[in-house]
Computed example of a mutant assay.
Amino acid sequence: MKLTDMQKLYSLEGLTAAVTGGATGLGLAITKCLAAAGARVAVISRDLSGNASEILAELDGKVSFYPFDITETQKSQEIADIIRADLGPCSILVNNAGNHCKKYIWDMSAEEYRKVLDVHLTGAFALTKAFLPQMRENSFGRILFLASMTSYIGQPQVCGYATAKAGILGLVHTLAAETASFGVTVNAIAPGWIDTPMFRQATSQDPARLQKILGRIPAGQIGSPMDVGHCAAFLCSRAAGYINGACIPVDGGALIGF
């Protein structure tokens, strides 16, 4: 295979991607990497926080912002149609939007639990259903979910989040089986401990916790948001066409550490 052909396999040039929660944290890193690979990116988010608007504006016109609350599932098809009209058929969907409710189960209400599932699972399901016909129409698509270490291991005070992230694995497996014949792959990334504002807030005043985390990671260091973005760009490329129904940990080896 010629070098130019290899480069095309990793390029997202000419493709439209939608990224939920794509204006902050890991989502912003994914947005940057998809745009750098050539994709037109529709960032779906309830709001632009911090300096996200300035960062997105720097991405050379490759990024458009669409205010939307993914829990409003009755409007999922509407936002998918708007993005198609603006940017063309969507070939890539990254389900990254999420929320947390850090409480022990005895302190968490059923409503709080349900709200976490509504974002991570129900909202992602509805958007996937809305965008999937565009991918089937073109016989090509990449659907990506953000799983978590809590998809595999138990952590206290995140029962809603852990339920949702474990559920994502079941959704990925089923969708991969259902959509493969249409040229669509469905995968997930399970980020480990990544250097985000949320992580720094959780560990800055708790050095013992930080050392415990580092002791579990064979790489001996916390990951960068761009580590997740790079993996996402690869899984969304044609080069990853035979990877389907998988969840790839981006964790420095934390899942196999001790």
Rank of each mutant, 00 (worst) to 15 (best):
G253E: 09
S139T: 13
T128I: 05
A166S: 15
Y104G: 13
V184H: 04
K8Y: 00
I83V: 13
A166M: 08
L87E: 12
I55K: 04
K62Q: 13
G223D: 04
S224V: 02
I256D: 11
T163V: 03
G154E: 11
L34H: 10
K115E: 15
L255N: 08
H230W: 04
I168D: 08
R114G: 02
Q134T: 05
A177H: 12
R46K: 11
G22Q: 05
A36E: 15
S49A: 12
G27E: 07
R142V: 07
Q74L: 11
G245T: 04
G21I: 07
F234T: 12
T4I: 15
I92M: 04
F182R: 02
L3D: 12
Y66E: 02
H120F: 00
N187C: 01
Y113P: 04
Y104H: 14
F65W: 07
A239D: 05
R84C: 15
K32W: 06
F234R: 05
I168W: 01
V19T: 06
D81M: 05
D195M: 13
C90E: 06
G98W: 03
A166L: 03
L235R: 09
H120N: 14
A35D: 05
A162S: 15
A177N: 13
D206F: 11
K129R: 14
P207S: 10
A246C: 09
L12V: 06
A39G: 12
P197G: 05
I248H: 03
G27Y: 03
G14F: 02
L146Q: 04
E72Y: 03
V184Y: 03
D5T: 08
A57R: 14
L121K: 03
V186Y: 04
G160H: 04
A177V: 05
C247M: 14
N187W: 08
A190V: 08
A219D: 10
A190E: 00
I30H: 02
Q74M: 00
G241K: 09
R238G: 14
C90Q: 11
F65E: 06
L59Q: 13
G223S: 03
M226K: 01
L3W: 11
I30A: 05
H100V: 14
D81Y: 05
A80M: 09
A233R: 11
T174M: 09
K129D: 03
S181G: 11
R136I: 03
K102R: 12
S139L: 11
V94C: 06
K165S: 11
T150H: 09
A124D: 03
S53W: 01
S237C: 12
R84T: 14
L146Y: 01
A202G: 08
I30N: 02
N138R: 15
G88L: 00
A232Y: 04
Q211C: 01
E78N: 10
D107H: 14
T196Q: 03
D60Y: 00
